[in-house]
Design a protein around this nucleic acid. Structure first.
Length: 438
RNA sequence: GUGGCCGUAGCUCAGUCGGUUAGAGCGCCGGGUUGUGGUCCCGGAGGUCGGGGGUUCGACUCCCCUCGGUCACCCCA
């Protein structure tokens, strides 16, 4: 293969049209839902002081091994990192601006983790999410979680399961930690080598192990639910009741731990059963009641989630949901008399709000017609010597068996608008799939 | 960071026990007599067979290294 000088870095990729348009539309669906629910957009930096992320947990790979870190040219240099997730930056912003509570925000954007790529996992990946800070009302939990549920449904996904659990507050958590650690220590010999290491650093996460050897031990481990304090248990019950009242289906998943260390009380995860890969979690979140304080702000409860755009799109493909956009080009102007007419007519059509395109380089009519077809345009406008002489344009219906007629250019925009309004839009055709058409 | 599999045209792939000018389909470009796409027919462009080294008279084919892709572990969206 003739090798390009450069390619996209490991774990990153270029997303070409029309797939790029589909992603953007997905974010728009999310934004619409979030904003109609009272969440405002927060645009925060793609990089932060490395300290913002180090609060996520010293025992966490996301912080210890997977950070893209760098120093800037300040004197002294500032130690910065590309964000590996978005919640920490949101909490930093809260501590910095002290907005009125509850602060409800949504976001979208790229994040970066230095990991080995695999199915559904990239070094640069995109998430959308919401966060509600400043209230620990269980109704806030319900609002956030159900927003996720409704979003997947809005995309047309049917095989996404919601798993919920409670990790308890710090008191119940430490009681549980002690019990779990004691239990795991007692069966240490049966655990995998990896899990024994994990046990030293963060016993909770042993529950996350996928290694078959660990499963019997995990299956008999004590459950968090049995250690919840009265207040935590009550909170969890309220959240469940709230979800019930919205008919939001969920499963209690007593061993759902989640990756980041800051989670307290409510945790949840969305799993796409349509994905048969190892990375089938398409979203997750929970409460992080201590995080703002950790970052120097006032004690502030918070809850939120992040949904992985890349994986959601994979799940949509697997379910045949959230189909591609219609072609943005509705009219294609074929001009065999030098291209000036194409320039003018495209301009008129575009100013009228239509999607219009044209060919360059003075290609043959046949070649231009082919372009017109490939563009997905419903209508072709043809200007040749005859039309030019008469001040007219030929309007051709590009659908199979469509007819054509000639109109004065003064009536062109109206005529094309009429035809397009009457016609079904054609789908955008990905470059690499043109051959699949019937 | 660890391991499995894979790297031949833009894409998907074929290439017989190592043996002359490396093939197909699709895509792309052009043509099929008068200005018309999607079907059909004809033609064309396009490959240092990922890169480097080695074995050999000879390597796309065998060996080593390296880079990249992919999947899994780890971890996580």
């Amino acid at each position: 293969m003739a090798q390009p000088l450069f390619r996209a870095p490991v774990g990153t990729r270029d997303i070409l049209a029309p797939e790029s348009a589909r992603r953007r539309r997905l974010v728009r669906v999310f934004a619409d839902l979030a904003e109609r629910s009272g969440f405002g957009l927060l645009e925060s930096p793609v990089f932060e002081d490395v300290g913002v992320f180090q609060r996520l947990g010293e025992a966490n790979d996301v912080v210890t091994k997977e950070l893209f870190e760098f120093f800037d040219k300040g004197e002294p240099p500032r130690h910065l990192a590309l964000r590996p997730e978005l919640t920490a930056g949101v909490c930093r912003a809260f501590a910095e601006h002290r907005p009125v509570s509850p602060w409800k925000i949504w976001y979208s954007g790229p994040q970066f983790r230095y990991e080995r790529p695999q199915a559904g996992r990239y070094r640069q990946f995109e998430q959308v999410g919401v966060e509600t800070l400043g209230t620990d009302d269980p109704h806030a939990d319900v609002e956030v979680i159900s927003l996720g549920v409704r979003f997947y449904a809005a995309l047309g996904l049917t095989r996404v399961r919601l798993l919920v659990n409670s990790l308890g507050d710090s008191d119940s958590r430490s009681a549980y930690d002690a019990a779990l650690t004691g239990y795991l220590q007692s069966r240490r010999g049966e655990l995998s080598e990896q899990s024994r290491v994990t046990l030293e650093r963060n016993p909770l996460r042993v529950l996350d192990s996928k290694r078959p050897q660990d499963q019997p031990v995990i299956a008999e481990a004590p459950l968090m639910v049995d250690f919840l304090s009265g207040a935590s248990a009550e909170h969890f019950a309220s959240v469940r009741a709230g979800l019930d009242s919205l008919d939001a289906a969920y499963e209690i998943s007593p061993r759902l731990v989640r990756g980041l260390d800051y989670y307290t009380r409510t945790t949840f995860e969305f799993v796409a059963d349509a994905l048969d890969t190892a990375q089938n979690a398409v979203g997750g979140g929970g409460r992080y009641d201590g995080l703002v304080e950790d970052l120097g702000g006032p004690p502030t409860p918070g809850i939120g989630f992040a949904l992985g755009v890349d994986r959601i799109l994979l799940a949509c493909d697997a379910e045949g949901a959230f189909a591609g956009d219609p072609a943005p080009v509705q009219v294609f102007v074929v001009d065999t008399v030098g291209g000036q007419s194409a320039a003018v007519l495209c301009d008129w059509l575009r100013q009228a709000g239509l999607g219009a395109d044209r060919a360059f380089d003075g290609r043959s009519m046949k070649a231009q017609m082919k372009r017109a077809d490939r563009s997905g345009a419903v209508v072709a406008v043809i200007v040749g010597p005859d039309e030019q002489a008469q001040g007219t344009a030929t309007v051709r219906d590009m659908r199979p068996g469509g007819d054509q007629h000639t109109v004065p250019t003064s009536e062109l925009v109206a005529e094309v608008s009429r035809l397009i309004a009457a016609a079904q839009p054609r789908p955008a055709i990905p470059q690499h799939r043109r051959q699949d058409r019937d």
